[in-house]
Design a protein around this nucleic acid. Sequence first.
DNA 1: GCAAAAGTGTTAATGCTACACCCATGT
DNA 2: ACATGGGTGTAGCATTAACACTTTTGC
Lengths: 245, 245
Amino acid sequence: MGAKGKVETYEDDDPRAYEQPSVTVDLALVSVRGGRLQVLLIRRDRPPYDGGWALPGGFVRIDESLDQAAQRVLRDKARMSGVFMEQLYSFGAVDRDPRWRVITVAYYALLDEQRFEQALAAADDLALFEVIVPWPGEEGGPAKVRTPEGKGEELAFDHAEVLGMAVKRLRGKLDYSPVGFELLPKEFTLRQLQEVHEAILNVSLNKPAFRRKMLDKRLLQPTGKFETGVTYRPAELYRFIGRKG
Amino acid sequence: MGAKGKVETYEDDDPRAYEQPSVTVDLALVSVRGGRLQVLLIRRDRPPYDGGWALPGGFVRIDESLDQAAQRVLRDKARMSGVFMEQLYSFGAVDRDPRWRVITVAYYALLDEQRFEQALAAADDLALFEVIVPWPGEEGGPAKVRTPEGKGEELAFDHAEVLGMAVKRLRGKLDYSPVGFELLPKEFTLRQLQEVHEAILNVSLNKPAFRRKMLDKRLLQPTGKFETGVTYRPAELYRFIGRKG
DNA sequence: GCAAAAGTGTTAATGCTACACCCATGT
DNA sequence: ACATGGGTGTAGCATTAACACTTTTGC
C-alpha cells in the first residue's frame, strides 16, 4: 500500500482497499402501557436465533443517512412516521452476527399508547413484550423481555444489550429532557405522566413531590379540560409546551 | 431478492445485495492544560479540506470490533494505549465525505497532561488546539478550535460537530462519573480538579463548595503528601479511588 | 511581616420528602 | 354518606451557595 513521503499518512484513503463491514440500523420501539415498559419485537423464522425475538432493523443504504435509514425502517416495519427517535449507540463486536460482519447503529423510538397499538395492528409480524431492567443497572446491563402473560423470551443477537442501554438512556434523560411526554398523548393527566416515569425508572414516586417538580419546570400547560368517565374526581388534562403542537 | 411466503420478511438478509457504506472511527483526543480544554488534530495535506484540521481516524477492519479499531487508531496515530476512551456518537450524513460514503463512529479519549505531551511529541503530524464551546451549547452545537496563539482554524468534514458533541458529553458526565480524574495524573490537588471542571464547563466554580462536594463523594483519598515548589501554602495531594490503581 | 493560595466554619437559600388534609365525582 | 383518587399546605431534612475567616508556605 505504497506510502510515500511522510511516515504516517493521514489515512489509507481508499475504502475499497479493505473488505467492508456492513451497517444496519436496529430500532427499539418502546411505549408505556398500563404502567409497564413495553417494546415491539419481530420473530426470527430462520437461523441464527431461529424462533428468537429481535429488534426490527435493516441495512443502511448507500444513498441515505443513518437517521433516514432509521426512519425508513420505522415506516417499513411499523408503517409509521413522525415519531420521536434518537440514536442510541453503535454495536460492533466482530461476532455479533455469526454470518457476516455487521455493525449496527441502534435507535430508540418513543410511541404513545395509540401509535403503539397502531404499529402492532399494522404489522402482523410484530409482537409486544414487557421490558425488565432491574434498577441499579449501572453500566447498562442486558434487558430481559417477557410476554404480557409472563413468559420469558430470548432476544436474538446482542439485542438484550441494546435494549438494556435504551432503558438506561431513557432513565438518564428523564429529568432533563422531554422524553416522558413523547410516550403520552397530546393531553394527559399528571398521574399518567407519573406512571410513565415510574415505569421507566422502575420505582414508585411521591405524588405531591412529582406534581410540583413537573409544574415548576414550566413545561406543562393546563388545558382547563378534565378527564371523563372516572368514578372519582377527574384530573385536569395538561399539554406539553414544546413538541407535538 | 425474491421474497417468498410472508409479506414482510425480517430482512433482506444478504448484505452483498447492496452497495455498502464504509465505516471509520474518529478520535477526539482531549486534555486540559493550563485551565484550557485542548484537543489533538492532524493536518490534511490533500483535498477535501486540504490544509484543514481533522480528528485522527481510520477505517474499521473486517476482523476488529469498533472499540478495537479505536484502540488501534490511538496506537497508530498517538503511539499510546491504556487510555480512557468511550464511544461518543455515529455520524452518517450521506455527503459528510464528498469522495465516498463513509459512516464514522466517533470516540473521545481523555489524556492527562503528561500523556497529552507524549502524544504530541511522538506523532509529528499532530498539533494542539484549544477548544471553544460556549456554555449553553444545548443541542451540541459545533465547536471551534484555535491555536494556543489564538488563531482560529477550520475543522475538516463534520468534525466541528463531533468535537462539539464530545464536549457536551463531557459536561454531562462530569458530575456523575469519574471523567474528571482521567484528565489528571494519579495524584493531584483539589485546585487542579477544580480547574479541570471549570475548563470543561467553561464556568468558574466556588472553591469551598466544590471542595466539599468532591470530598463528600468518597472518591478521593488523601495521600498525606503535598505539592512542592510553590510560593504559597502547598496543597495536599489526593488520589482517585477506583480506576488507575 | 506580607502575599498568595490552602483549607474550615457558619449561615442562608433551595429543593426534595413525607405526611396530613381538603376537594370533586359516581354510586 | 362513602369510597376513590385529585390536588394543596406545611414542616423537616439534605444539599448547595456564599462569605468570612484562619492556616501555611516563600520571600
